[in-house]
Each structure stands twice: as C-alpha cells, then as structure tokens.
Design a protein around this nucleic acid. Structure first.
Lengths: 162, 162
DNA sequence: ATTCTTGCAAAGCCTTTGCAACTGC
DNA sequence: GCAGTTGCAAAGGCTTTGCAAGAAT
C-alpha cells in the first residue's frame, strides 16, 4: 500500500493463464480461479486462505475452501503471490508487479508494514555467495508493536493510573 | 555450531531457576524441566518439540509431549531459547549464551546454516526508529539449497544423462 | 472423450487444553 | 497442605486429500 508498483506488461490474469498453459501437462483455467485472481489483485493487502475464502463468499463469489487452498499454491508457483510463513497460518501477498520488500508485523493489531532496504538485498547476495547457497526466497519479519498500538497502550496506562 | 558462544555467568539451569522463582507467583522447577534444560543445552542445534520429545525418550528421559510443549514456552519466556516460526512446525534454538544471528535454511536436507551480519542489526534499528515501531524480535530466513545439496543435484543430473 | 478441477467431508499435522493424579516448596 | 506441574486423551486450528460429480479443452 505504501510502496510503488513495478511496471508489468501482462495483467495478473494473463500471466496466470500463460503459466497454466506452459506446464508439462497444461492445466485448466476455471471460473473459480479467475474469480480468485481478479479478487486478489483488486486490492493490495496481506491475507490468509480462510479470510480470503470468507470475503469472497460474502461478495457472492463462490469458491470452496479446498479450491482456495489449491489455487493459492498455484498462484505462488506462478509467481503471482508470495507466501509468508510467519506463525500458524500462512499469509499471502502480491508478488507480480510489486517490489521486493520486508515486513514489520504488529503483534497487537496484526498490521503488516512494508519497507524496502537496499542493504538487505546486498547482505543476501553476499551471504549466499559466501556459503555457495542457491536462494529460492527469503522471509524477513520484524515483530513488535506499531506506533498506533504503542500510543494507545501508553494512553491506557495513563488512564489506569487515575 | 559455527558461531562463537557469548560468555555468560550462569548456567542455563541456574538462569532458568532464577526466572522461575522471580515470577509473580513463583513456579516450580521439576525433574522433567531439569532434564529438558540439560538435554537441550548439551548440544547445539535446531529442533522442534516433537523431535526433542522423541529423542529424550530414546535416551530414557521421560517427558510427555504436553510437558515438552509447555516447558519450551517457558524456556522462550526465560530467554533461554529463541523460537523460529518458519513453516508448519516451530523450531527452537539456543538464545542464552549465543549471539544474535540469521539463517540459511536448506529446503532439501533441512539444514540450518547460521550467519551474522552487522548491517542487518543497523537496518533493524533504522527501520524501527523510522516507523516508531517497538521491536520484540525478528525472523530472517533465507530459503534455498545448500552447497552440498547443489553438488549432489548436479552430480545426479550428470548421471541421468548417461 | 479425456483429463483436470471442484466441493465435500474426512483425515492429517502440529499444538493446546481440561482434568485428575502427583509433586515441589 | 497449597498451588503449580504432569500425563493422558480429547479438542483445536490450519491445511491437505480421497473421491465422485462436474467442467475445460
């Protein structure tokens, strides 16, 4: 929401169709998958499988939980989404058309704050070279409390003293 | 295993006892907890709850799964262990007497390679200051394939060509 | 027509929890 | 003896999967 998008030549939907048709055994593009891609890329946020499923159903888009899970996996493979494994439930976010970034995660309100930092990318390159490690991806999450939650905790503490 | 330990004045066991007795309501130090602390600090590695439980039982140390889970939580609270949430199962590692570091995780053999990098700590400080964020902890894991696994994959590929 | 996808419900995996028996202090 | 701990088994939360019915190519 705060970082600027990267220019891409294809729409997420087109990119996904291309991915599906280029598989060893071509896979099918279904109504449910189309609805998911469109819904997910209609807004920029972090979400988990279950919440997505719930939200889509409330908008009248019918997808089963199983299909949501299965399709999210494909969207990650296709490079459209990134998966953050931070805690019990997997979180997803846009990858296609969005720059690499890291996260501050508020443990009180759940908010994910994104930030970019060139130093991190160079650290990653260095470390991988040093260890002859072939990187597939990375997760960098700083956990704590965001400014708003800090503020309300202080306020609350003040009130408690009265 | 590769980083050098930090000098500490108390043994992990002492530090844990101190933590337990300093709680609002003092907690008890049981045989099971003692066995766990000793076993965990007898070797330096990354482990998950279930594996630990299994290993201890094989050494004749009797602890139930429930106790292992409950005690691991306390050990994290006490600052003896750190918990890495990277994937479906929580991984634990020494915190007390061990320097801050980050991880390369091999997705083929499961190995965790530790590395230290001062740039990362300064990035964390900067970002937290900028966002007025109060940090509690962080996770930085680079996923991919380690040098050994890369080598054997290449070898295997060569053999496949024959 | 063939083969992949869906939806359901069941199973799986990891972790937490209620409760009675037990134990450290 | 009181209050915290253990072990068991059951429940919980999230995700995956077997299968029959349905849909894409």
């Amino acid at each position: 929401m705060e970082l600027t998008a990267v220019a891409v030549s294809q729409s997420p939907e087109e990119k996904f169709r291309e991915f599906l048709s280029s598989r060893p055994r071509p896979q099918r593009y279904t109504d449910q998958q189309r609805d998911m891609v469109r819904y997910i890329f209609s807004k920029h946020n972090h979400f988990d499988a279950d919440t997505l499923c719930e939200e889509m159903r409330q908008k009248g888009l019918n997808v089963s939980r199983a299909t949501v899970y299965r399709t999210l996996t494909k969207l990650v493979d296709a490079g459209l989404l990134r998966c953050l494994e931070t805690g019990p439930k997997k979180k997803y976010e846009h990858d296609y058309g969005y720059p690499q970034h890291e996260h501050l995660q508020c443990q009180l309100c759940g908010k994910m704050i994104e930030f970019q930092n060139p130093a991190i990318e160079s650290v990653i390159r260095d470390v991988c070279r040093t260890h002859n490690f072939h990187m597939n991806g990375h997760t960098f999450v700083i956990r704590g409390t965001c400014s708003e939650c800090n503020r309300s905790r202080v306020t609350k503490r003040r009130l408690d003293l009265i």
